[in-house]
Design a protein around this nucleic acid. Structure first.
Length: 392
DNA sequence: TCTGGGGTCCTAGGACCC
DNA sequence: TCTGGGGTCCTAGGACCC
């Protein structure tokens, strides 16, 4: 039986939350990210700001030069955004129990078989958008297709507040005219390898033999692109993917040479990582120090410990000794941080969204009220939209 | 023009063991 | 004195994604 995969992407997520909670900022260019005078980039910006050509990951100084004086700049409040995200994921779970969050503002749902319960794909997609609007007062763009790649490209096809369904027989017509960079794994470095061959669209890539693709992209990458260009891609949705690493890093406002400041910063990172690890029930053996030296030279150094740990002091000791064994002392540091990975075999899985609660019998969108109460209880009123309204 | 922070996955060489 | 493969672990870096 063919799968039906839904991809949902919350529109301008951080910026939309800020505008939701500050009505006076609605309709104005708004940037969530670094302070306009400082170092850093745009995390997300409102659609009003995008009209000036501002995009995610653009250096904040460059964005500030383009944007008008009435622009609002806000620092990210990740704890708040994460609460909204969890509320969205919870309400999506009333549609289908197979929800895989892929980032704070994106998820895949396996909605195969829901046509009998809800209706055709268009209606399922509409329902997903409605329950999110009702729960948190935000718009989302939805794409539905036979696998994850097509669902994702469908949600990107119309934004914001879009809804696009691609049936299996429409896949090649949908894919062929797209720029080849939409395929997963063709980024800034590898896409030009194909562009140099005169290829520009997915249709062009589809015309290429498997052997040629493997020659230019490597055996693994070449095969993956060959299949994607034919609309063949992963359609498994994994509701409880375990995380593989925990890390914390920071970029200094100005480069730092004082070893005491570096050590204090690593201590902070060790405490943050240790806290997250202990609360998730993780212990890891691999400690990685990350450092970015002036002007923009990045290194990692890692050490495998004999015994898995989640201890702040052990993390700090390992990271600091990695720093000290390198001839970096005295060189100005732009960024420093550390990570923990390599979980012990017996590390328990991260508890899922509803851990500890009785399993919901047959979750359906009709149970929205009960779900909203549960969300309010777990994530606080702030996660929810004020002036709650029911979907029709 | 200056380039965040949080991740995932892959590659490749060397050590080491059988 | 020279020489196999295969497998696993460790480490560093890079590409990519949101």
């Amino acid at each position: 039986m063919p799968r039906l995969i839904l991809h949902i992407d919350l529109d301008a997520f951080y910026a939309a939350i800020e505008q939701r909670d500050h009505p006076e900022w609605r309709g104005r260019p708004l940037v969530v990210g670094a302070a306009p005078g400082g170092r850093g980039v745009v995390a997300t910006c409102s659609y009003e700001a995008r009209r000036y050509g501002v995009r995610s990951a653009m250096p904040i100084a460059q964005a500030a030069r383009r944007l008008p004086p009435e622009t609002v700049y806000v620092r990210p409040d990740m704890a708040r955004y994460a609460a909204v995200s969890r509320a969205v994921m919870a309400v999506l779970a009333t549609l289908s129990p197979r929800v895989e969050p892929v980032s704070i503002d994106e998820a895949y749902l396996d909605v195969s078989g829901l046509e009998r319960l809800i209706g055709p794909p268009q209606v399922i997609g509409r329902r997903a958008k409605d329950v999110i609007q009702a729960a948190v007062g935000l718009t989302a763009s939805v794409g539905i297709g036979p696998n994850r790649l097509i669902a994702k490209l469908a949600s990107e096809a119309r934004k914001p507040d879009g809804l696009t369904v691609v049936a299996p027989e429409q896949v090649s017509a949908f894919l062929d005219p797209m720029p080849l960079s939409v395929l997963r794994g063709l980024g800034a470095k590898t896409a030009p390898r194909l562009t140099r061959l005169g290829l520009t669209t997915v249709g062009d890539v589809r015309a290429l033999a498997l052997e040629a693709l493997r020659r230019h992209l490597g055996a693994r990458g070449g095969t993956a692109i060959y299949q994607q260009a034919r609309g063949i891609a992963d359609d498994e949705v994994h509701p409880e993917r375990a995380r593989q690493s925990i890390s914390k890093e920071t970029t200094f406002g100005e480069d730092v040479e004082d070893p005491l400041v570096l050590r204090d910063t690593l201590r902070w990172a060790a405490q943050e990582v240790g806290f997250l690890a202990r609360h998730g029930g993780y212990k890891g053996r691999l400690v990685t120090l990350k450092i970015r030296l002036h002007p923009f030279e990045t290194h990692t150094r890692s050490r495998t410990l004999p015994v898995p740990t989640a201890s702040d002091t052990e993390l700090l000791r390992a990271a600091w000794s990695l720093y000290q064994t390198e001839p970096w002392a005295g060189r100005p540091v732009r960024l420093i941080g550390l990570g923990l990975s390599g979980w012990a075999e017996e590390t328990p899985e991260q508890p899922d969204l509803f851990a500890g609660e009785p399993p919901a019998p047959h979750p359906r969108a009709e149970r929205l009220d009960a779900t909203l109460d549960a969300i309010r209880e777990r994530f606080g009123e702030g996660a929810l939209h004020r002036g709650l309204s029911r979907p029709r």
